[in-house]
Every structure is written in structure tokens, then in C-alpha cells.
Amino acid sequence: MTQGATTTKATFPSVEWFKAISAIVNDDPGYNHIGTCDATVGVRIPDLEKNYLLTFEAFEVSDVREVTPAGAEDTDFWLEMPYAKWKEMLENIKQNGKADLHHTLNTIDLEDPEGFARSHDGYRRDAFYRFNQTFQYFFDSSAKIDTAFV
């Protein structure tokens, strides 16, 4: 992915930030090329008490909303880490145009003893792996906007 002209500004974490990334990938042939993805994904930032629900449907991210902690966990899987770690990952993506070797979703997941991707269901959790390229592309696309941090 190459860094294009940066025009959108949004604050992480917020519904607007996730919607900005969704708008980018929904209009991106490269994202379509990866193939369909059907999954509900929670995002949890416990120390900020922020929780989101992302709905990936066919070739697009069809819905983004702020939810309760239980709402974020009532998904195929949720991504959870402290705010500082989220910030580090997104700053790395911005700096490199995409995650470097140490900041991919899978690497972060394996290096965290608790796991970055969590689920109450061993089968539904596999969606993290089944669509991993899609989720990586989604977060890598944050390099295309100006992210402000709270």
C-alpha cells in the first residue's frame, strides 16, 4: 500500500475514526481483491472504557458503532489491548505506510500472553485467522488518514 494524499482527520478511538477507515476500504479495489469477509469484530480499549463493534459483510465494512463491553464481546472475536499499545500500532502503521514486521495483528496476538484477538468461542475465534489479511488491510489503511490521539 502506498501513502496517498492525506485528507481525512479523525481521532482514535472514535466511531468517526473507524468510519473513516471503512470509507477508504469500501472504495478500494485492493480491499475487494482480497475477497469476501463476513465477521463481527469487537474492539476493546479497557483503560479508556471504549468499545466498538465493526461489521464486515461481503466486500465492505457495513457498520460501525460504539457498544458496551458486553456488546464488543458478543462478536466472533474482539481485539483488546491497552490504549498505549493501540497507539503504538497505529503510529507504526502511519510511519511505514503499513504495519512493520513487529506490528502485524498476528504478531501482536502471538506476543501477548493473553492474546490480542479473544473470543468466547473457539470456532468463531478462527475468523481472526480466516480473514486475517482483510483485517490487516483495514488497519493498514489507517496510514491514509491523519490520526489524532485522545
Binding site: L101, T107, L110, R130, N132, Q133, Q136
Partner: peptide, 21 residues
């Protein structure tokens, strides 16, 4: 997934990630 973790370049990262999918 472990292969992705221990990869030394983006090509290997992509290989292991796609195979894991």
C-alpha cells in the same frame, strides 16, 4: 501463525498469513 511471527521480511509474512487463512 508462528511462521508469520518469526518471518524476516514482508514476503514471508504474506506467505504465512495467507496460508493460515
Amino acid at each position: 501463525r508462528t511462521g508469520e511471527l518469526v518471518s524476516f521480511n514482508e514476503a514471508e509474512k504474506a506467505i504465512y498469513r495467507l496460508c493460515a487463512q
